[in-house]
Nucleic acid binder design. Sequence first.
DNA 1: CTGAAAGCGCTAACAT
DNA 2: ATGTTAGCGCTTTCAG
Lengths: 337, 337
Amino acid sequence: MVRIKDIATKCGVSIASVSKALSGNSDLNPLTAEHIREVAKKMGYVPNSSARLLKTNRSYNIGVLFVDDTSSGLGHEYFSSILNSIKEEAESNGYDITFISHRFKNNSLTFYEHAKYRNVDGVIIASVDFKDKEVIELVESEIPTVTIDYEFNGKTSVVSDNVQGEADIVEYLVKMGHRKIAFIKGDDTSVTQKRLTSFYRSCKDNGIEVKEEYIKDGRYHLPNISGVITRELLALDDKPTVIIYPDDYSLLGGITEIEKHGLKIPDDISIVGYDGIKLSRLLRPIITTYVQNSTEIGRKSAKKLIELIETPKTALPETIFVKGYLQEGKTVKDINK
Amino acid sequence: MVRIKDIATKCGVSIASVSKALSGNSDLNPLTAEHIREVAKKMGYVPNSSARLLKTNRSYNIGVLFVDDTSSGLGHEYFSSILNSIKEEAESNGYDITFISHRFKNNSLTFYEHAKYRNVDGVIIASVDFKDKEVIELVESEIPTVTIDYEFNGKTSVVSDNVQGEADIVEYLVKMGHRKIAFIKGDDTSVTQKRLTSFYRSCKDNGIEVKEEYIKDGRYHLPNISGVITRELLALDDKPTVIIYPDDYSLLGGITEIEKHGLKIPDDISIVGYDGIKLSRLLRPIITTYVQNSTEIGRKSAKKLIELIETPKTALPETIFVKGYLQEGKTVKDINK
DNA sequence: CTGAAAGCGCTAACAT
DNA sequence: ATGTTAGCGCTTTCAG
């Protein structure tokens, strides 16, 4: 390993001068500096981030907190896509990404402790139980954080605009002549709450009375559950003309069930998803769904966190809404005619 | 921030004693040690991994190298699943995960330099161009590495058993009475090479003469490309009875095209995928595909890398094959009858 | 313009 | 059983 000291010896200067030459921002003789840099390069010098951190208290490392639960976290296209864009944005700003988690070996650390242990400059939190004590501890700590799809009072967050999204869906359905709209909820989270509230409000705005039997408790990402609920909805005397699923993935369970009943989509019943997974455009019929802009969500989160880290004075906590758009597929029938 | 020194002061002992008490493996008075540990806990002490690293040269941090190319890397279910299991296995052994990449801000580092800069104890390499100079530099460096789905001579790798996989597919197709088998290649990589070679060999073993017009250059993960190729195959005078696609995702492009021709799967033509994405079980018909054991691949990679790191003397370089299995869906017709 | 020196938080060899 | 001390590689003040 080549150290600054080695370069200093080779160049016959002090280690301080080498450090200055390498960082660039000092009043060294430009020629000396250039020479030092050349030698450093020739010797294959790579700085040691840990040693640097010890002095500067900056790691240029961002922690990312995802749960590892089955079917959530990285298994979810929405989140793996967010992670990917966080990574890209961070890297292009000179930051690396380290996962924050509980750790098991000997000492298990809380999320906050883990973040301190790794000296991350900040943490992006996504896809976790936001009521978790440890998550709250982390958010309320001195470490800058950005939460995704959940707002903590006075903290920074980036959220997919679920209110607008659900409203857009209802608006579209109404335009297509639907008034019997079933809504399958996802797990009980704030995202689900927002979508549901927006659903109710949009229905009201359009003079639609929501039948309680059309509102069902479902789960995200579990096609089988959606299948069962779909069966219940199809068994109603007064069937809905359209079913809104909590996500595209669980919608697939609905399709299977609907086809089992010998019904045609969208002729016999219409369906709508949420997320806009890549597959929604590949399947036939193309799925009508609300496409969340996961790339933008990841990018904004990283950007905002870095701002929080680098200019804490001027960066004010805020909630950033990221809009998506309705993908008009072929799974909703126009029943006006 | 609470430092060892603070605890020492509080307890009226030396910092050495605190360090010893915390690490446990030393001949301290058990009572003193216990007391120190209690105080440390009460004070909210969290060790500083960077300071520790500086002394010990161990970071307990594993680098993971994925390319960021569109449609590859994390966007690929196969790889995000591998990443997830790497993460789990690593964490349960007390290691964290940091992404290795080029970095852009000021100084761009090679992969090897980046790994050194972050002091990772080892690197897992997946989904990259293995001919890349930088990748080779990293693999041939002093840093322990495990490559996924690519073997470097004398190095450790974990590979999905593509030879067996393709052979299993052919075997199954033959059993189902197929002899006109089309094969769409993925991008030109060693994985593709292995599958193709295995395909030829298996056909030969079964007395099947492979028509060159049945072998097509395709791409991984690009349904449109598969669609175009499917059209070409369907236009042949002597059509194949079954098409093997490079992956499940690109197979979907094939389905779309086939349906456009008014053909039924599997009655008019059979299709087979590769990967076994979750969706392959959700769609109707269920896709016949070779399911790669991505979880096991990730787990084994991490396990093996940690072995390489912790017991370099006894860990010998090897290629670990991970088998998958054929998922018999409903997209292959039995044409024996 | 350059260098000496202190010290970030920790471990471990070596004293006591 | 406990403490002293050196030093990991680096940055940064301060002195020259």
